[in-house]
Computed example of a mutant assay.
Amino acid sequence: MAGLGELESRVMAALWDAGGPRTVRAVHTTLAAERPLAYTTVMTVLDNLHGKGWVRRERAGRAWVYTPARAREEAGAEMLRDMLDSLGDPRGVLLHFARGMDEGESEFLRRALSRERDGT
């Protein structure tokens, strides 16, 4: 899965935060509150995200409504996996990452891995 550009990331965040299908107009309204942005730009970005498999779309009358193709956490994990695969030494990268985790993150990961091994 390809990474996202800055505007693509903002569009995806708006869709994830919305919690349901959104039209181009609704996404544009959300993003335009942050900074001026052309409606056609948002429409093009959503079309590109659909082509890349990041969003699904359905017709609702004359408009398309868009929803994320996967949860934010799943997309983040896929992006991390792609990055690890591209770096040549995934174990080394993970080790450096783990060393930078705070105690709460480390404990969460230990518990999650323990549950996974136990099948719970």
Results as ranks from 00 to 15, higher is better:
residue 1 M to I: 14
residue 3 G to N: 12
residue 7 L to Q: 06
residue 8 E to H: 09
residue 8 E to R: 10
residue 13 A to N: 12
residue 19 G to Y: 04
residue 21 P to G: 05
residue 21 P to L: 06
residue 23 T to A: 03
residue 23 T to V: 02
residue 23 T to F: 04
residue 25 R to W: 08
residue 26 A to T: 08
residue 26 A to E: 15
residue 27 V to W: 00
residue 29 T to W: 07
residue 30 T to E: 11
residue 31 L to I: 01
residue 37 L to D: 00
residue 37 L to K: 01
residue 38 A to R: 13
residue 38 A to G: 04
residue 40 T to L: 11
residue 44 T to I: 13
residue 44 T to P: 07
residue 48 N to W: 07
residue 49 L to H: 02
residue 51 G to E: 08
residue 52 K to I: 05
residue 53 G to T: 05
residue 54 W to H: 14
residue 54 W to G: 03
residue 56 R to L: 14
residue 57 R to A: 09
residue 57 R to G: 04
residue 58 E to V: 06
residue 62 R to F: 10
residue 62 R to N: 10
residue 62 R to C: 05
residue 66 Y to P: 01
residue 68 P to W: 01
residue 69 A to W: 08
residue 70 R to C: 05
residue 70 R to G: 05
residue 71 A to D: 12
residue 72 R to V: 01
residue 79 M to N: 08
residue 81 R to D: 03
residue 82 D to N: 12
residue 83 M to Y: 11
residue 90 P to A: 03
residue 90 P to N: 03
residue 92 G to E: 04
residue 93 V to Y: 06
residue 93 V to G: 00
residue 93 V to E: 04
residue 99 R to D: 07
residue 103 E to I: 12
residue 103 E to S: 14
residue 104 G to S: 07
residue 106 S to G: 11
residue 107 E to F: 14
residue 108 F to D: 11
residue 108 F to V: 10
residue 114 S to A: 15
residue 115 R to C: 06
residue 116 E to F: 15
residue 119 G to K: 11
